[in-house]
Design a binder for these strands. Structure first.
Length: 880
RNA sequence: GCCCGCCUGGCGGAAUGGCAGACGCAGCGGACUUAAAAUCCGCAGCCCGAAGGGCAUGGGGGUUCGAGUCCCCCGGCGGGCACCA
């Protein structure tokens, strides 16, 4: 069906736009004229604008998500350039990461070779999209020229105390011999090896993101050009909570431990306590386990179950009674049992809680299982104390709402919030605790036991400890000769790489063999783009000029990790004097996903869209075998469901402008879009229509601008200048689908003018103007076609659409010469009247009242109010 | 469980509190054609109808001369966080 669209044998009746020749030609013209190149430190007076799309991981080929991302960014870049800004619009490669190592293990290709070959493929595909990129700034993070600079920054963070080495619990895959991220643990097993993951204590490098937690949270408030949703997600992730740290003295010290510190957001419920629980990893638990084999067994069991979400979901509250007891800060005579509990996390707060079962769901589940007391101390508003207490007795639902404090000594009668303050004040007075702010955010563990990453530039010396690699010896390069046929980190396995002399004492020492988490690479690349060739990580003048990124564009999936790391790293770089901004991205836009129908054959196998033929009745069949095909849900494109469409094939068949136009026109860019064959062919038809309309206008000989315009010419000019105003407004607001709609309207107006009497005054000039405005307004979206049209309108001219300023609308033409005013009676539309703009109120109301249908309804009725909104509406309100 | 979005024709969607459905896709009718494709021009929310009415933006209330838009309640869908103390 769609083969006819590009079938060379099909009869061609009218001049047809040959996108294949044109796109290549204009891409070359832009390159020759270096239209998109900017200096690291421009000397001009142009204001700067930095547009950046999240750089791609070179996985093999580009996908539609890339096409959407880079098209959106390119529209912004081209538009801002036309508005007179010097636009920095770079591209690079997030090139370190696990898939390259997997390719090495599975296919015997070296990670570097695999990566660079993917980059070559993807670069060629991106170039075919006609993106207005400054390709001279391109870099890949796996290049020592990049990661060596990253090592310098790290060493400065280390000197500034923002990086440190410490022991922590990690997910350890005993088969692969490596640490796994939480995301790589599936149902308690390693995602690659399938081995049961163990919790293990390892020395790891941490970046102190928690140092900036208060600022990272507070600054979110001022970030008006970020989506509220992303700010909210970051705020949740940082997770500030206010509460109290409370000291519970042990009745008898255990292995020199005299007290347990507890964090609680509910100090108002202290009198409802019935036990104290500590995490299995708590030092006190370890002390108990040292003399109590049953406790040790319980702790080991908790550890074995791990921390994956699935196991947490399934796990019941389990505990072990240590037989230890703690004293209550407000009730010195009373003591409570200390349990080790599997639901208490060492990572949050102090790794210990006081259990108040009546008002905490987890605590009540635990209390019911082990028959611990449940003492209600917060009375719900309007409830009766006796009735409530009776109801809680035997209940397994905690009450965590607001209320009045009961059974709580000096707190009795207070509102819960009031009681929190009073309890903290009393704790502080007695020296038993204090009010604290607690954060959910954890320091960023960046050590990975991987080969294909940036080496962490330190040396471990038995005599000197951790020694930074001296600046002169940077970069610490990855060795090329590594083996992937054994599990574990190839760097660790390398015969010679790690053996070095200590820079301090000259003795035998070993390199750190861990490499950085790849999120470190992407935490500062945007700043490096300002001076990609600089000998230092950043050129101060360049970053001062270009940073922050004015518009950053990418997927919502990076709402937390990447964007938070980048915000942190920028602050850390500021505090080590690399630049002078705190926020890297002044504006953030998160695009929706590209989705597609999925297809299955009768055997349930997934089919690619190109294997499937849609029929007119809505059913689908296999293109070759004719077998019926089940149409599945519309969902995100993924290789496993085979519902992907290859951008390269689309560009081959329809051209880059068509792909760009469809991806922009379908729906608002922040929402998920559905890729459909019908949508692409529709976009393709429009490129042809636009070309035909412009071609016809270009055949009209140029003439000086007429003094006068007849009615059809004036109508077209009004449409053109209204389109300028409306497209501009739409582009400013990221409403690209609306901009597209306005361009369709202008195309229709031009088509209508084509049918008017060609002798009409000024019509030829107006048609040429209309065609030119169509091209220029569409140029951010369809840059090649815009150049082609402009070249035909002005043969022999070397001016490029990419270099033209944005058109200005003539106000006289944008202003309406007549307005349609809606006339309502009692708020219901009863008619419309045509009036000159800004007519006097009395005139408008008189005209409205005499509109026949309205006059009929007003007949014999008393009008108590006349509402008049100039140029919009008249509303008659009738009495009684 | 907590937090945040979203809900408008057959579909994607448009609409500073002021004519709901711009524009596109699919559909229907017409022109061109021997015919088809392509192209071009029209029509098109639902119901009753002659004029003209009535009902319509998930459901129910409210504010207002006037609500898709603002407020409250309910429902559905999607997302984020989560044994977080």
């Amino acid at each position: 069906m769609h083969d006819t669209l590009t079938d060379a044998a099909a009869p061609v009746e009218k001049p047809r736009y040959d996108f294949r020749l044109a796109e290549a030609r204009w891409q070359q013209a832009w390159a020759e004229r270096a239209c998109f190149r900017v200096a690291d430190v421009p000397d001009g007076t142009q204001s700067k604008y930095y547009v950046l799309e999240m750089f791609p991981y070179p996985s093999g080929k580009i996908h539609m998500g890339h096409v959407r991302n880079y098209t959106l960014g390119d529209v912004v870049a081209r538009y801002k350039r036309a508005r007179g800004h010097a636009v920095l619009h770079p591209m690079g490669w997030d090139a370190f990461g696990l898939p390259a190592e997997n390719a090495a293990r599975e296919r015997g290709i070296h990670p570097a070779e695999w990566t660079w070959s993917n980059i070559a493929t993807m670069r060629a595909e991106l170039r075919r999209m006609g993106l207005s990129l400054d390709w001279e700034r391109e870099f890949a993070t796996c290049d020592p020229a990049y990661y060596g600079q990253q090592q310098r920054i790290f060493l400065d963070l280390l000197r500034a105390g923002l990086a440190e080495r410490r022991e922590s619990w990690v997910n350890w895959d005993p088969v692969d011999g490596t640490v796994l991220a939480n995301e790589q643990v599936i149902d308690g097993r390693g995602w690659r090896s399938g081995a049961l993951v163990e919790k293990k204590r390892l020395s790891q490098w941490f970046l102190r993101i928690t140092h900036y937690a208060p600022d990272l949270l507070a600054a979110l408030d001022g970030m008006e050009r970020w989506p509220a949703r992303v700010r909210q997600m970051q705020a949740n992730w940082i997770g500030r909570s206010e509460g109290a740290e409370i000291r519970f003295p042990l009745a008898a010290p255990e292995a020199a431990i005299e007290a347990v510190e507890v964090y609680s957001t509910r100090p108002d419920t202290l009198f409802g306590m019935s036990f104290l629980a500590i995490a299995p990893d708590h030092p006190l638990a370890a002390a108990v386990a040292g003399r109590d084999a049953a406790a040790a067994a319980f702790i080991a069991e908790c550890r074995r179950l791990g921390t994956s979400e699935a196991t947490i979901e399934a796990a019941e509250k389990r505990g072990y009674d240590t037989r230890l007891r703690v004293r209550h800060p407000f009730l010195p005579e009373t003591s409570f049992p200390v349990w080790i509990a599997n639901f208490v996390l060492m990572e949050y707060g102090t790794g210990a809680i006081f259990g108040c079962p009546a008002h905490d769901q987890r605590d009540i589940e635990f209390a019911r299982r082990y028959s611990l007391p449940v003492l209600p101390v917060v009375l719900p508003p309007g409830d009766d104390a006796l009735a409530f207490t009776a109801r809680m007795d035997g209940s397994d639902r905690a009450y965590d709402g607001p209320g009045t404090i009961i059974h709580s000594g000096f707190l009795d009668g207070m509102d819960a919030n009031e009681a929190k303050r009073a309890a903290i004040a009393e704790l502080e007075r007695r020296g038993a605790g204090r009010g604290v702010v607690n954060w959910r955010l954890r320091d960023w563990g960046v050590s990975r036991q991987r080969y294909w990453g940036c080496p962490i530039p330190v040396i471990h010396c038995p005599a000197c400890g951790v020694v930074p690699v001296p600046d002169a010896e940077l970069p610490v390069r990855l060795p090329d000769d590594v083996r992937f046929d054994r599990p574990g980190n190839p760097l660790d396995d390398h015969p010679s790489w790690k053996h070095v002399a200590c820079p301090g004492c000259g003795g035998a020492a070993e390199r750190e063999t861990d490499t950085f988490d790849t999120f470190v690479d992407s935490a500062w690349y945007f700043a490096r783009f300002c001076s990609p060739k600089a000998a230092r990580p950043l050129d101060r003048a360049a970053v001062d000029h270009w940073m922050p990124v004015d518009q950053y564009i990418g997927g919502i999936e990076h709402a937390i990790l990447h964007l938070l790391y980048a915000r942190f790293f920028t602050r850390a770089m500021r505090d080590t004097f690399y630049l002078d901004v705190a926020e890297p991205f002044a504006g953030l836009f998160t695009q929706g996903m590209v989705t597609h129908e999925s297809y299955r054959d009768p055997d349930g196998r997934w089919l690619y869209p190109e294997e499937v033929e849609r029929r007119a009745d809505g059913s689908a069949a296999h293109r070759e075998t004719g077998a019926p095909v089940t149409i599945g849900r519309v969902e995100a494109m993924s290789k496993s469901r085979r519902n992907t469409v290859d951008p390269g094939a689309i560009i081959d068949r329809y051209g880059a402008d068509t792909a760009r136009w469809f991806i922009l026109s379908d729906n608002p860019p922040e929402r998920d879009m559905e890729w459909t064959e019908a949508g692409v062919t529709g976009a393709f038809r429009f490129t042809q229509r636009l070309f035909r309309l412009a071609e016809a206008a270009a055949e009209i000989p140029p003439s000086p601008r007429p003094e006068m315009f007849g009615p059809p010419a004036l109508t077209l000019r009004r449409a053109a200048h209204r389109a300028i105003a409306q497209v501009t407004e739409a582009l400013e607001g990221f409403a690209f689908n609306v901009a597209v709609a306005r361009i369709y309207e202008l195309a229709s107006a031009l088509a209508e003018a084509e049918r008017a009497d060609p002798a009409a005054t000024g019509l030829g000039w107006a048609r040429r103007e209309g065609a030119e405005m169509l091209a220029r307004l569409a140029s951010p979206m369809m840059p090649h076609l815009a150049e082609e049209i402009l070249a035909r309108l002005h043969p022999g001219s070397a001016v490029l659409a990419a270099e033209l300023p944005w058109p200005e609308a003539e106000p006289a033409l944008v202003a309406a010469q007549a307005v349609t005013i809606a006339v309502q009676v009692m708020g219901k539309l009863r008619g419309t009247i045509e009036m000159p703009p800004d007519a006097a109120e009395a005139v408008v109301i008189a005209a409205a009242a005499s509109e026949p249908n309205v006059a009929r309804l007003l007949e014999g009725r008393r009008v108590v109010k006349r509402v008049h909104v100039p140029n919009r509406i008249v509303n008659f309100v009738l009495g009684g």
